[in-house]
C-alpha cells in the first residue's frame, strides 16, 4: 500500500477507535440509567428510589397471583430467585401474563416496598416451539428444567 493511502487508513482507524472509546465511556457512565428495569434484588437492596416511577422486572412467582373478586386488582410476587417484590396492579394484564412468565411492571414503590403498578408488560424469551413440543416437555417433567434454564439465561 502506498504511504498516502496508509496514512488515510490510519486516520480512518483513529476516527473509529476515537468514536468507539467516547461512546463506551458515555455508556459505562450511564450504565444504570440504560437498564429498562430494576431487578427484585436491586429493589430489596434499596437501589430503587421510593415515590418515583420505576420499572421492576422478574419472573412471576408460581402460586403468588391473587385476584380480587370485586375489581381488576391483582397482586403478585415477582422474583429473580434471590429477592421478591410484591406488585399490585389494577387493569388488564397482557395475554402472555402467567405464573413463571417474565414481566416488567411500571409504577411507584410505596413505603411497605409494594410496587403499585400502572403498566404491566410481558417479557418474551427467545425460545420458540410448537405446542406439541411444550406438551411433551410438560409430560416428561422437563418443563421445570427448561424454565429454570431460561430464568438463569435471562439473568433474573
Amino acid at each position: 500500500m502506498n504511504p498516502v493511502r496508509k496514512k488515510r487508513l490510519y486516520a480512518v482507524m483513529a476516527l473509529v477507535s476515537g468514536a468507539g472509546i467516547a461512546v463506551a465511556l458515555a455508556l459505562s457512565a450511564l450504565q444504570q440509567n440504560i437498564n429498562l428495569f430494576y431487578s427484585p434484588t436491586q429493589i430489596a437492596a434499596g437501589d430503587a428510589p421510593e415515590e418515583v416511577r420505576i420499572r421492576a422486572g422478574g419472573l412471576v412467582a408460581v402460586g403468588s397471583v391473587t385476584r380480587s373478586d370485586k375489581s381488576l386488582d391483582t397482586d403478585f410476587v415477582v422474583t429473580d430467585g434471590v429477592a421478591n417484590v410484591t406488585i399490585r396492579y389494577n387493569g388488564i394484564l397482557p395475554d402472555l401474563f402467567r405464573e413463571g412468565q417474565g414481566i416488567v411492571a411500571m409504577g411507584k414503590l410505596n413505603d411497605q416496598g409494594v410496587l403499585i403498578a400502572d403498566e404491566v408488560l410481558a417479557k418474551h424469551d427467545e425460545n420458540y416451539m410448537p405446542p406439541e413440543v411444550m406438551q411433551a416437555l410438560e409430560q416428561s417433567g422437563m418443563k421445570q428444567q427448561h424454565d429454570a434454564a431460561n430464568a438463569a439465561k435471562q439473568g433474573y
Partner: peptide, 23 residues
C-alpha cells in the same frame, strides 16, 4: 449488556438456534 424488554437473539449464525428445525 442491559435489562431490556426485547429478548436475546433467537436466530444466530454462531449459536445453536432457540427454535426447532421446522421453524
Amino acid at each position: 449488556w442491559w435489562n431490556t424488554l426485547h429478548q436475546p437473539a433467537t436466530f444466530s449464525i454462531v449459536a445453536k438456534p432457540a427454535m426447532p428445525f421446522e421453524m
